[in-house]
């Protein structure tokens, strides 16, 4: 175990943990926008900055999401400087990106009433990269990427772009987006993935074998099935989440249905 101090309180954390994880474990709040445990640190939203000091360290302001704990580390999460910088960043976000619930919540929490700034050029979203990373690292489709207009070669992130041929229509990006810049619009069997208000990809949904409800795209099902082994593939059923629950519950209680009703 490693002992560090956060806001003057000695804290135990295990080796390899980040300061953010150690703080959250102790119930100390540090705001984040681009961090998600399942995807690991990314370090672009900068809201999780803290003051760090300790043996062998020049006192600095660092993001806590990718700062690993070490013995004797001294962290301050809520100093006046940190608060000031964080407020400024929230103001910048409010002024440059479309207003959303999560941003409004953040602003209220940190006492930002209105932004002092009015940039002429606005961003289409907060560019936190959660959608890009989940699509690449978890779904394995890499349909979303950061993109920029080609005029400037050093710009990495100006907007999110969708490669509709690579998209599987799973909708994870829409679920993960903290500012609803990507939305899922399902109408009967028609699924649209809407990015920045424009249809980015379109799919037909497959109907559940039991209840007939359109529930998922064939592309996504194929992608999941392709990762299963022979034995696992035998257990694949085309069911909506609701029917799947019933089906496997029945299986577990021993009343295994002879056949799936929809297949008859």
């Amino acid at each position: 175990m490693i002992t560090l101090s956060i806001n003057g309180i000695p804290i135990q954390a295990s080796e390899g943990m980040t300061v953010l994880e150690a703080a959250r474990q102790e119930g100390i709040e540090i705001p984040t926008l681009c961090y998600l445990k399942a995807l690991g640190p990314f370090g672009v939203c900068r809201l999780c900055i803290v003051e760090a000091n300790g043996p062998g360290l020049i006192p600095a302001i660092l993001p806590s999401c990718n700062l690993k704990v070490f013995e004797g580390l001294v962290i301050t999460t809520d100093s006046a400087v940190i608060h000031e910088i964080r407020m400024t960043m929230i103001e910048l976000l409010l002024a440059s990106t479309p207003l959303s619930e999560s941003l409004r919540g953040l602003a209220i929490k940190f006492g930002v009433e209105a932004s002092r700034f009015m940039p002429a050029k606005k961003d289409p979203c907060i560019l936190c990269g959660l959608c890009v990373r989940v699509c690449r690292d978890r779904i394995g489709a890499s349909a979303l990427s950061f993109a920029s207009s080609d005029s400037n070669r050093h710009v990495v992130a100006e907007e999110i772009r969708m490669d509709k041929d690579a998209c599987l229509g799973c909708g994870t990006c829409a679920n993960i987006c903290p500012v609803q810049a990507i939305k899922l619009e399902d109408m009967e069997s028609d699924r649209k993935i809407v990015l920045y208000g424009k249809v980015a990809s379109r799919f037909e949904l497959v109907k559940c074998d039991i209840c007939g409800m359109p529930h998922m795209t064939q592309e996504f099902i194929d992608s999941v099935v392709s990762r299963l082994n022979k034995e696992q593939k035998k257990g694949v059923r085309n069911l909506c989440p609701e029917c799947a629950r019933h089906y496997y519950a029945e299986a577990m209680t021993g009343q295994f249905p002879a056949d799936i009703r929809g297949n008859r």
Binding site: P119, D123, L127, G129, V156, A157
Partner: peptide, 20 residues
Amino acid sequence: QNNSCGQCIPCRTGMRVLAD
């Protein structure tokens, strides 16, 4: 601002506001 990679908020938006 023209050479900011645009990934983090302070540099991307902050430099824009500064220039303005």
